[in-house]
Amino acid sequence: MSMIELQDINVRYHSGKSENHVVRGVNLSVARGECVGIVGESGCGKSTLLRSLVGLEGHWTGSISINGEALGPIRTKDQLRCAQMVFQDPFASLHPRHRIRRALSEPARCMGLPVDDARIAAALEEVGLPASFADRFPHQLSGGQRQRVAIARALIVEPPVLLLDEPTSALDVSVQAEILNLLSDRRDERGLTFVLVSHDLSVVAHMCDRIFVMQNGGFVDELSPADIGAGEARDAYARQLLAASFLEELA
């Protein structure tokens, strides 16, 4: 049974003449424990698709189901708990005036889960941070450490699905690999299902089992990590994307 099932998802803003059709008829099925990647240039609708899936964006039509449960634009707490998200910018995704302890205890408290210092320490340890970080403020942490906290925050409500919106693009190259490895390890350990959005093909090829190429709001091609390594694609746009990223790596 698939974990995530998207059928004919469309997102439109401003109906009528000034209509902006951001996501066009996307179908996607993700198996339990799978990691699916979505690549495409800025503005192709990949982030909007992810936000619709997780419940932050309410303007979609079509059908979304996670873990066998059909979801609407407005979610209950239990439905929200099915999927959590890690955001792109670790400097913007943690409340600047909440200590790490608060950042991690709030999700549990809101979801009605028990939370104590031991739980927080375990959550921090799981993402490779010392328990003493609980008393720090986000501005006392580096970008990579903040992203680890953001991952811990998403995982603390124990969601079966984790949505990753460019989780490493705001980080240094050396830190990127650490974060990706951390994500892979947690996935193996917990049997998580990932949907990873990125514009970085090497990140996607490293992490994902299947990769969808998105252009103008729709999927135009499906690739395997091997395809990306070989630079092969059926669709013209996907080939262009691969070639562009190949050039980038050379430079």
Binding site: V54, G55, L56, K77, L80, R81, Q84, M85, F87, Q88, D89, A92, S93, L94, H95, P96, E106, P107, C110, M111, A150, R153, A154, V157
Partner: peptide, 13 residues
């Protein structure tokens, strides 16, 4: 901001 979006995701009232 993202931190408010994240809070919506964990069901903050």
């Amino acid at each position: 901001t993202d931190y408010v979006a994240a809070a919506r995701l964990y069901g903050a009232s």
